[in-house]
Every structure is written in structure tokens, then in C-alpha cells.
């Protein structure tokens, strides 16, 4: 019991560190689900608040999955019905342009098409795919967060790619 008390997240410093480490990723995760940045920020805040209020119940090593479960439940309770419209910031990492204008335009168009296609994926596929692509999470980490097997994550990623290709080729 004592060890549990020392390890729990009711300590403000520990909670703050945890928040700074995890809030961005949690926010992204909810954003992949709902496609609304204000909503994801709200849910993130709400989830951490719930986490803080239940800090005594958090088992060591289970904090992250507990947090994601809270956030997911909040999302499911309130917002899952809403249609998803993703709107990524198209952030060009290259500053140089040795490509032709046609190529750049084509690339921009492709990015737009891809966003639409991702928006139309099932929530499970989209979330797994974007957690891997944007947050750079390994399949094992995704599996841990979503509470599913690594194989299931691979299946979601695989199917996401297949779906994206077929949708993009059809546009």
C-alpha cells in the first residue's frame, strides 16, 4: 500500500511531468478520431482532470493506458457520432524547390486527396495509421494504447493502406 502511495500520480510534480509528456500525443490521438482540434483539446483536458481526480486508483505502469481509456470513453460518450473532417497542417519540411510548379501543384493536390481519403477511413484504421505516421509510434506501442494485439494493429495499418490506395486511384 505504501509503495502504491509513493508511486501514485497525486503528487503534483509527477502529474505535471506526466502531463507534459503525454498531453500532446493524447491530443493527437483524439484528433485522429474526431478531426476537430478544439474538441480534442477539450477532451484532453477533461481526461487529465479525471485522471487527476482518480489519481489514487492509478496502478503503477498502467497510467498511460488508464489515461487513454478515459479519453476514449469521453470521446465515445459524447462525440463519436459526429462526422470526421481532418484538416492537417500541410507542413513542408523542404525549403528548397527544384521541382517544377506542376509537380508542386500535383503534390499539393495529392496531399488534399489523401486527407479526404484518411477522413473516410474507419476510425480504428485511421487512428492506428496516423499514430504510426504522425507520432511515429511503433505497432507495439499502438497496441498497448488501444488495448489490442500487435497483429491487430498490423491488420489495421495494412487495411488502411489498401483502402487509401484504392480510394486515391479512383479519384
Amino acid at each position: 500500500m505504501n509503495i502504491n502511495k509513493e508511486n501514485n500520480f497525486c503528487d503534483e510534480k509527477k502529474f505535471s511531468d506526466f502531463f507534459l509528456n503525454q498531453s500532446k500525443l493524447l491530443n493527437n490521438y483524439i484528433y485522429y478520431k474526431c478531426g476537430n482540434i478544439d474538441l480534442s483539446a477539450d477532451i484532453t483536458q477533461e481526461a487529465f482532470l479525471k485522471f487527476w481526480n482518480n489519481c489514487k486508483k492509478v496502478l503503477p505502469g498502467k497510467a498511460k493506458s488508464f489515461l487513454y481509456t478515459i479519453a476514449n470513453n469521453l470521446f465515445l460518450n459524447e462525440y463519436a457520432k459526429n462526422k470526421v473532417v481532418l484538416n492537417f497542417k500541410n507542413c513542408q519540411t523542404k525549403n528548397y524547390t527544384n521541382e517544377s510548379p506542376e509537380f508542386l501543384l500535383e503534390e499539393k493536390e495529392f496531399g488534399f486527396k489523401l486527407q479526404q481519403a484518411i477522413s473516410n477511413l474507419s476510425e480504428a484504421q485511421r487512428t492506428a495509421f496516423l499514430m504510426n505516421r504522425i507520432d511515429g509510434k511503433k505497432y507495439r506501442e499502438i497496441a498497448e494504447i488501444l488495448g489490442i494485439s500487435v497483429k491487430a494493429v498490423e491488420k489495421r495499418i495494412h487495411n488502411a493502406l489498401v483502402n487509401l490506395r484504392s480510394v486515391i486511384e479512383n479519384i
Partner: peptide, 9 residues
């Protein structure tokens, strides 16, 4: 998709 970034947080 590598170039996508989530709006700032």
C-alpha cells in the same frame, strides 16, 4: 502523410 502535422498543441 509524413508531412502531416496535427494543428498545434
Amino acid at each position: 502523410s509524413n508531412q502531416f502535422k496535427v494543428p498545434s498543441f
